[in-house]
Design a protein around this nucleic acid. Sequence first.
DNA 1: ACCTGAACACCGTTCAAGT
DNA 2: ACCTGAACACCGTTCAAGT
Lengths: 243, 243
Amino acid sequence: MADGMGTGVEDAATAGGRKRAGRAELSPEKVLAKAIEVIDSDGLEAFSMRHLAKGLGVTPMALYWHYPKRHDLVRAVVAEVLAGVVPATATHWEEWLRDYMHRFRAAITRHPNVAPLIGGQLISNVSGNLDMIEALLTRLQEAGVPDHKMVQAYNSVIGGMVGFVSQEFALVPSSSDDGWDGRMKEVIGGIDAERHPHLHAMRSRMENRSFILRWENGATRPMDDSFDTFTEVMIAGIRALTV
Amino acid sequence: MADGMGTGVEDAATAGGRKRAGRAELSPEKVLAKAIEVIDSDGLEAFSMRHLAKGLGVTPMALYWHYPKRHDLVRAVVAEVLAGVVPATATHWEEWLRDYMHRFRAAITRHPNVAPLIGGQLISNVSGNLDMIEALLTRLQEAGVPDHKMVQAYNSVIGGMVGFVSQEFALVPSSSDDGWDGRMKEVIGGIDAERHPHLHAMRSRMENRSFILRWENGATRPMDDSFDTFTEVMIAGIRALTV
DNA sequence: ACCTGAACACCGTTCAAGT
DNA sequence: ACCTGAACACCGTTCAAGT
């Protein structure tokens, strides 16, 4: 037992890998993995502590030992999904920003259903993000953004990027909000050529492919080229800040 | 009683303003007004059908006659808040876009707590927005955006604008998620000058004033000048699309 | 240290009635 | 037409126990 050694021995209850009756062998990692699995396959509305516990074969309260509040688990999910977003290494600032924005979106694409969690809450997984913030500030300075516009430029990039993608993957009404897509199609079909000529001309190109005029989100109707354009808009806009 | 006149007389049950016992004199407008009132004063988490009903002195189910699903009421709230956003009239496209974006943000500023509803769900109050979409498309064409980039440009403007503001007013953790702000301050205070020199230099200017490094949202810490910069970034970016 | 069980104060919504 | 009342199937979370 090596007594007297103050090495933080943890009670040795489950020592030797022996399973204790009534113990579910839970861990923060297992709970987190199951949470992401549930969100990915069953949608965000299935992400409840009780449903999760059932999936893990455990009492709801078992989860609370590892995550004291549901929001702690939410934070962990967001952190995990965003953990893969490593900004690229040394290139020109434009190339870096383009790459970073696409990496961010790619992470959300892997777990589209978590998007509302990222867009709706204050992003908080700070610790791991300081490197990213430092990199972004460095690149913005490299681009020529003056110090007195640095915070605004930073907020523009983050707000625009996170905001666009959150919008793209925004929650679709529900499983079947009776004929919500039908009504949308009706509205688009009924666009009047005289009242809304430009919209009328564009309607087939915009239908279900543009904000406000769609009934599916980015999970089933990704806005790839629009996001490409958006990054170019942002890059050109940042460049204009430097003159 | 003017019988025989098919003018859609409504049963005359409450005719003459006489109150019926057990009737609460509800209406879609009254429910909607109360919903916005509750959201504004008590926050989004207080916006439940049951809490709302209590506030109106009525059974929860009474609301369901006027709004068959909670989501119908959510839609109505969003539509109402955004109803005030009338795009400005004829000016240069840059002036128009700047004005429109600020009007949109001003509407959210009037009801900051509804922001998560706007950012999180697919925006759906279509009918009233066709005029706005037509106007935006017109201005983008006026700006010189070619037809084959029109949808992308439209999505960039809407996605960026709605996204930024949604982010700015994103939900703060909760009433008191024990020392969440404290931990954030610690992180910022502990920024290492050697590992993160740019961030270190900017830290006092960014603390609680920039995305990821804040613990309050736009309701208490509005990002006015960042949004100004963001609109200029968008405008310059759109302009770059035309060359 | 880690989990169970019962209980509290909530939800949205359906269904059958009342007037 | 418009509202009540009871019921169903959920929530997150606290508190007291168990091992």
